[in-house]
Nucleic acid binder design. Structure first.
Lengths: 174, 174
DNA sequence: ACCTGAACACCGTTCAAGT
DNA sequence: ACCTGAACACCGTTCAAGT
């Protein structure tokens, strides 16, 4: 005697993303997600293996989101970096989770290749991969530190971001 | 009727650091730490407010460790970056925790000022803070990505680190 | 075929009782 | 003055019983 579905995998992952931002990783509980989608916690196990799998799915959805934003940008060094930072500001917990949880290689490659593409046009094909790693590492670290509140020696944080972009262009050009 | 102490705050924090590396943040449990120092979990509450306070103390000990290593390096751009990366390779979970948990401002400033000092000699006093943030952000992001296994498009990761150091020197010199 | 309450394991935390 | 077992709250997870 089939019962109409009261939720779906996509709805669960979306609720997980929102709960993550509201309550942090420790607050991303099965009971919390269940409440948001309107079922009891045990029902989630029909669609998700366990909490770790849900966390992975939330991380994967965030990487997918990021890849889409990078592709939708003007693909310049500056455009890519600002799109990356904008996502991190909108979903800081999701940003952190991308580096704490495993995401599908295919999605990571999609985001990575967009950046390598852009890097090639600045530093040349020969150094494209090294250049992409330089820029991505800088942006990733800048955002991590910014979110951790590590920039408290004063100064202008937005200005430091622009300074970094300009200095990287100089360093890559040579 | 006093009882001889069976453990100490320092021993608890040290056990926490080791357990963190062995079992990850989720594995850093009060029961696990208690077992390592030879008491029962409730006894830890005589010396530590709660699990969050213990996690903060572990993060602070890691920042203190880092500050000491930076000060003991030759303080060149390359020396600082390599000392940072070496710590992260030895204590990857501790490195991650520095950006996930709050550490005392005084310790963070101590580490930060060592880097600003070095940056000043390369980019000039005027841009010292921006330059320090560029280098620190790059190293932090590089290590985060490396630890997350995000460098899987091939190529030589150590080579990419050296390429980054050289490009940053070029970009900062101008 | 999905949903639920009940049950169990595990962990954080408190507290009265021991020494 | 510190240490402990017992107790409680909370969460992840399983499962038999409902529809």
């Amino acid at each position: 005697m089939p019962t109409p579905d009261r939720t779906s995998y996509a709805e669960i992952v979306a609720a997980g993303r929102d709960l993550l931002e509201d309550s942090g990783l420790a607050g991303l509980t099965m009971q919390g997600v269940a409440q948001r989608v309107g079922v009891r916690a045990p029902s989630l196990y029909k669609r998700v293996r366990d909490r770790d799998a849900l966390i992975e799915a939330v991380a994967a959805a965030t990487v997918d989101d990021l890849a889409g934003r990078l592709e939708a940008s003007d693909r310049s060094l500056e455009g890519l970096a600002r799109a990356y930072r904008a996502l991190a500001h909108e979903r800081p917990e999701g940003f952190r989770l991308m580096f704490a949880a495993a995401a599908p290689q295919e999605l990571l490659d999609r985001a990575g290749l967009t950046i390598v593409d852009s890097a090639a046009s600045i530093a040349g094909e020969e150094h494209a991969l090294d250049a992409a790693r330089l820029v991505t590492a800088w942006a990733t670290g800048f955002i991590h530190m910014e979110l951790a509140g590590a920039f408290r020696l004063g100064g202008d944080v937005d200005g430091a971001f622009d300074y970094g972009l300009a200095a990287l262009r100089r360093g890559l050009g040579a």
